[in-house]
Design a protein around this nucleic acid. Structure first.
Lengths: 231, 231
DNA sequence: CGGGTTATTGAGGGGCGTCAACAACCGTGG
DNA sequence: CCACGGTTGTTGACGCCCCTCAATAACCCG
């Protein structure tokens, strides 16, 4: 983990993050109080149970956000990518309720809660965007709950692939891309075993829906994947 | 559904809802712009896809909050009870993303989004509580996702019972109480079939953990249920 | 190149969904 | 009040999906 400050005004996610409508004077405040860090792949950004209270912005890279589950298995509740914000992730006592580890090299910015809250209080731009983020997050979580509850493993595998693609690629690109997630990780995204992931990826490969070679993945047929997931 | 206004100042949930720290002048505003309604059991409060944009407060009763799922099965994402708030339940276009139907006779208050937002903007008390509500909600959803993903049906049944009890009872009361949820509903709370609910309730009954007679349910041993759920 | 992790594939078995038959319950109308 | 049809709940048989375990292969890093 190395520290390297970038100006908020030149940040690549300035216009796609939750701060896109942040007024200039507040962005200046954030710029002064923030910490920027870059983590190598596989490093811990947040550890569940720790007491750091604040907000993290992901400015590049991909990280897995997970909670500890049963019998030693985590559940990956989502993949964070450039533009994602990790907010309100603590309980009432300020203890982190999630863990975050990087999958790629990723850069994050951190603002302490008190600084962030004072800005939220003042800035209607930030507040409105925050509201929308919540709305989307809530609806996404509901969708994922349905997937976890009702899909079979083939459908779950397809769902996981779509989730991964949306974290790694813009739109529905059919470009090959390198994924540093293990089969176990993919399984933990959707609550199935690594063996089932292997088998179902093999199936989808034979059906030419995807191509897999080593860690590179390529999605040839988004429509088919969406059809499998259904709804 | 019948309309019947109650003053916010005399409302039974005034001090346990999200408005508990709402300043007097804002509560006056809410009091003027709100609509109070009482629904009989089994009535629709919100229909997924409808365009009503605003916030609902539950002042009494119990309602199921659900999203449509696969193969005609809904997933009940939670039970709302007195003090619950249904907020940010629409997508960007203002379409409701959840359905809510009453299980008991329940009273709700409704405030239009624009009124609500102007109050959020002004009232730091409301805003802070809202933040905490989000925090809790998010963490609860994560917990439920883990349950959906990783528990077996016996554990899921126990989890559902704890969920129901917390919606119907104060603390961990061992009083019998009447539940108007069908076995199917209980199954839809946690993604299992009604038959499995039946079987597992019978098991728990034989183990004296619960008592069931008709629609009345009694939880004798909370600790045991929590042990079964584990973690 | 070699040891350790990760991926693949198959065999086996059990958990749980599906189906079906029957019982209990509920509101309605005779 | 009982009759009765419709809904809901209970229980069992069956079978398949998917988890577990294991053996082998592929990969990765020093």
């Amino acid at each position: 983990m190395k520290k390297q400050d970038i100006s908020c005004f030149e940040c690549n996610i300035r216009y796609c993050s939750i701060l896109k409508n942040c007024e200039r004077k507040f962005l200046e405040l954030i710029d002064k109080s923030k910490f920027c860090m870059t983590y190598g792949k596989g490093q811990i950004v947040i550890r569940q149970g720790s007491q750091i209270d604040g907000v993290y912005f992901i400015s590049s890279g991909v990280a897995k956000v997970f909670v500890s589950g049963y019998r030693g298995r985590p559940l990956i509740v989502g993949l964070a990518r450039a533009g994602s914000v990790l907010d309100h992730t603590t309980d009432e006592l300020g203890k982190q309720q999630i863990s975050v580890t990087t999958v790629e090299e990723t850069s994050v910015c951190f603002i302490e809660s008190k600084d962030y809250e004072s800005i939220c209080k003042e800035s209607s731009g930030v507040r409105e965007d925050l509201t929308k983020v919540y709305q989307r997050e809530l609806n996404q979580m509901h969708a994922r709950m349905v997937h976890l509850a009702q899909l079979n493993v083939r459908e779950k595998t397809s769902e996981a692939l779509l989730h991964i693609a949306s974290a790694y690629l813009l739109e529905q690109s059919t470009e090959p891309f390198e994924v540093n997630l293990s089969r176990q990780d993919i399984g933990d995204l959707i609550g199935i075993t690594k063996e089932q992931v292997s088998k179902n990826l093999a199936d989808l490969k034979h059906e030419k829906v995807i191509s897999v070679k080593g860690k590179t993945l390529q999605i040839n047929d988004y429509k088919k994947l969406q059809d499998i997931v259904g709804l």
